[in-house]
């Protein structure tokens, strides 16, 4: 078991290091490279004195690495600064939006992961058959479709033609189940379409990879039927790659959410970030970006840890 603990610890360390490097990249792009924020904020008519004063106020007169450390310290202690656009603390803005995004992401994950695993396992079991070929064509097309096409088609069908759902999704504070369904049906469906396809494909690929191994032929020659071969023999060896597939697909939610939240006017963290880009609100943008990166790295980390823990070669004493 010690081996496993060492590997997991190493993996966590590597993830932390990557997150640190990512923060440096994000800070460099947003704060160091674009030029003088004070000059830009005050416009062309500003006197050199007012610019200098604002620079001191914003801490822009300090060298880059100090500003980075200061910013990083603020981020870690939960005080990432003030929003430039509406002068509210960034932490407050994020706190009001983050839970809503998590509900959206959680609901999507709860719908799509089981569905994708089912589709992936089914098509692996009947690989080469009709079911597999139809599913393959479908998933292959779905992974290549832009989210906004799915979203616009969904709106056209369910809101415009059928009048079942509203094109805008602003969740009330304490929704009933029916309200919840009406609000989340389209965003979740849009997000699920692409990631179900992606996850199902990767699950299938991971399983088929195992099904081509010699031990699977051996299992067949022992008299195991197709279901037993896939579930008992191949699946335990495919946990690592499947966990990886789930993590990658869920991380895709991050990008998908940006489009979906914007289309449906959903008040989540992704639409907050898009607003920050439009208004060039750097402190808010940096924080949102770091949240997305941290979530992404955590997902990949969890998948890797799953792979390490499930690796049969590290089992036993």
């Amino acid at each position: 078991m010690n081996n496993v603990i060492v590997l997991v610890a190493k993996r966590i360390g590597a993830a932390a290091l990557t997150l640190l490097l990512v923060s440096a990249v994000v800070f460099a792009i947003t704060s160091l490279l674009p030029g003088d924020a004070a000059e830009e904020a005050l416009g062309q008519g500003a006197t050199p004195e007012t610019v200098a004063a604002l620079r001191t106020e914003l801490g822009l007169d300090q060298p880059g690495h100090l500003r980075y450390l200061h910013w990083l310290g603020g981020l870690v202690t939960g005080n990432p600064g003030q929003s430039l656009a509406n002068h509210l603390p960034v932490s407050e803005l994020v706190a009001s939006r983050l839970p809503k995004s998590m509900v959206l992401a959680g609901t999507t994950a709860a719908v799509s992961v089981p569905l994708a695993l089912l589709l992936g396992v089914l098509s692996a079991m009947f690989r080469g058959g009709k079911v597999d070929r139809v599913l393959n064509l479908f998933t292959l097309s779905m992974v290549a479709v832009p989210e906004f096409l799915v979203a616009t088609l969904a709106v056209l069908i369910f809101a415009v033609k059928l009048h079942w759902l509203s094109a805008l999704s602003s969740p009330p504070d304490n929704p009933t189940f029916a309200q919840f369904l009406r609000v989340y049906a389209m965003p979740v469906m849009t997000l699920s379409f692409v990631i179900v396809a992606q996850m199902a494909r990767m699950t299938r690929a991971a399983l088929i990879d195992q099904l081509e191994q010699t031990y699977v032929e051996m299992a067949v020659l022992k008299g195991a039927g197709p279901t037993r071969v896939v579930l008992r023999h191949a699946l335990p060896n495919a946990i690592g790659p499947i966990a990886n597939a789930i993590a990658l697909s869920l991380s895709y939610l991050l990008g998908g959410a940006i489009i979906v939240e914007t289309i449906f006017n959903y008040p989540g963290i992704a639409s907050l970030m898009v607003d920050a880009v439009t208004s060039r609100d750097m402190p808010l943008l940096q924080t949102c970006a770091m949240i997305f990166c941290a979530v992404y790295l955590s997902l990949v980390l969890i998948a890797d840890v799953c792979a390490i823990v499930s690796n049969p070669r590290l089992k036993g004493h």
Binding site: L19, V22, I29, T30, L33, L254, G255, L285, Y296
Partner: peptide, 23 residues
């Protein structure tokens, strides 16, 4: 490889948004 690992750890749309915001 380390540099590439860092870049790949920033989700693509997030990276694009950050770049557009800055430049």
């Amino acid at each position: 490889s380390r540099a590439m690992d860092t870049l790949i750890s920033i989700p693509s749309k997030i990276f694009a948004l950050v770049m557009v915001a800055a430049f």
